[in-house]
Design a protein around this nucleic acid. Structure first.
Lengths: 294, 294
DNA sequence: CGTTATCCATGCAATATGGGACTTGATTGG
DNA sequence: CCAATCAAGTCCCATATTGCATGGATAACG
């Protein structure tokens, strides 16, 4: 059963004339007649009453005309949409990101992307770097904004910008106003930091920074979100090492640069090779830069 | 482009395995692979990522899977419905009828029909016999309940029952209570009758009945509906010759049989040959009789 | 009333498409 | 390193589709 038969029938139902309908289908009349006959044979139903002088649809033909139109319309639409998805003009882009990337980076990325691909529906999923990695590998995400992390053969990374850790303090803290802070300065401080399972990279950098002075950070609270950490710091519950990108415009938190500040590369991770075509414009936006400024 | 290709793709999208999908489609794997390849070539889109060890849908394939399912479902449904319409199990039956047949006959016919073909939608159209004839010929009606009328080559008729004209009188009329009335009895009466254009057959029978006594009926009022005629009679505005079938249970109208009462055959007229299959049960109901009793 | 024009169906030969059997090539797991 | 698995490639045949030419029926016209 060929789609062509449906098209032929639709043309015939409109013109009620085999010759004209055949011409519309860019074929000669004999094969056209056989297409109609073949359709009727396949259905086991007479759709058209023909005499040499009159062509009319049977009741079944009337019904089938309406339905065939609908089928054809859906089919054409399905083909068109498949092509659009393949071109990345439409479809879905599933983007995962670390919570604190939602601060400025993700909104800017999404805005720039939506301007280029208004027809692509963007699914945003907040997740920990570990979850992002898992979901990327399982193909549940198309891309993830996360820390660079360990190399995984199935994934590749595109650098977005280099974040640096800084020290966040309550406004009246004794270290506030210092031009730089070293590990020893924080020897007796209660720290607030994300737990290791939420971001191994971030927590690892914090530990390493203290380790260079032979110290072990004394972590008192372990919330999951950087935003929460800043709120706790503002309330005087402790100090924290946080990505500098999240500290701007926090009126009730003082920040101090770190000596030998650890760098954290924020990257877009994607599955190697497996390409959602809708991803391309996002990669291009990142390569063009402009997402670094706070 | 063959529907079969869509079915193959749907099967592949479910199993993600060429061999198993081919088996489900009752074919061997090589031609199945070609069907998929042909579909992709026709669309110009890669729908499936294949390696010898992994089969996965591309984003376009995911999208096309959903759409192809919908297309297939609609297509199957269209085929099924066309067959059902052809069998008369579903579809539409367009029935025209003379106004006064709505009194008892049409409701009974429709009830009996609906019991046999609950899935057929019945369109009822009140119309004059003349309109019924026109619409039947133009194929706008499938059947019409009307008077026998003149033979028309395109139409055929199935008798439903034989109606007889009777005299309708106001209750206190001088002729009320007579066992029979003759044309001479109505020599000086004002008559109420449908105009010729509404029913040539009925008006003709009335004229002929008077003519057999050399009289010409003096028609005073010409409403279009028999019901209206009875109302006018009841109010004492005249007398009328009306089909007996319409006079039962009219408390405020007296009826008197006519001498040599003209017979009016009420028939179901249909287009010759051109068969809405949904019509068959209606013909059968009429052939079985049981629609004659008042 | 015969002729002509129109229109759908059919016969025929060339071509295209679809399906099966077998084989190849690549990848994975033992 | 070998065996197993799986998709693609090759070859062949059956069927379907197409264009061209023709036939048969019907309505319009002279």
């Amino acid at each position: 059963m060929d789609i062509q038969k449906l098209r032929c029938f639709a043309a015939l139902a409109e013109t009620l004339h085999f010759g004209q309908a055949a011409e519309r289908m860019n074929m000669t009349q004999p094969p056209f007649s056989r297409q109609i006959a073949g359709l009727e044979r396949a259905l086991g139903v007479t759709l058209v009453e023909r005499s040499s002088r009159r062509v009319a649809l049977t009741p079944a033909g009337e019904r089938f005309q309406r339905d065939a139109r609908a089928v054809l319309a859906r089919f054409e639409s399905a083909c068109r949409d498949a092509r659009l998805v393949a071109e990345g003009q439409t479809g879905e882009l599933r983007l995962g990101f670390m919570m604190h990337a939602a601060h400025r980076l993700v909104p800017r990325m999404v805005a720039a992307y939506a301007a280029r691909r208004p027809e692509v529906r963007i699914t945003l999923a907040e997740a920990t770097p570990e979850e992002i990695e898992e979901r990327l590998i399982r193909g549940q995400l198309d891309a993830g904004v996360t820390f660079a992390g360990a190399a995984v053969p199935q994934l590749e990374s595109l650098p977005i910008f280099r974040d640096r850790l800084c020290l966040a303090l309550p406004p009246g803290h004794r270290l506030a106003g210092r031009t730089e802070a070293a590990p020893e300065d924080l020897r007796d401080e209660d720290l607030i930091a994300v737990p290791d399972r939420v971001s191994r990279t971030l927590r690892g950098e914090i530990s390493r920074w203290f380790a260079q002075a032979g110290l072990v950070p004394r972590v008192r609270f372990e919330p999951q979100l950087q935003q929460t950490i800043l709120r706790l710091v503002a309330e005087g519950l402790g100090t924290a090492l946080v990505p500098a990108s999240i500290c701007d415009r926090q009126a009730d938190v003082a920040t101090v640069p770190l000596a030998a500040a650890p760098a954290l590369d924020v990257v877009l991770r994607t599955r190697r090779g497996a390409g959602n075509p809708a991803l391309a414009p996002l990669l291009e936006i990142i390569r063009q830069g402009g997402l670094t400024a706070p």
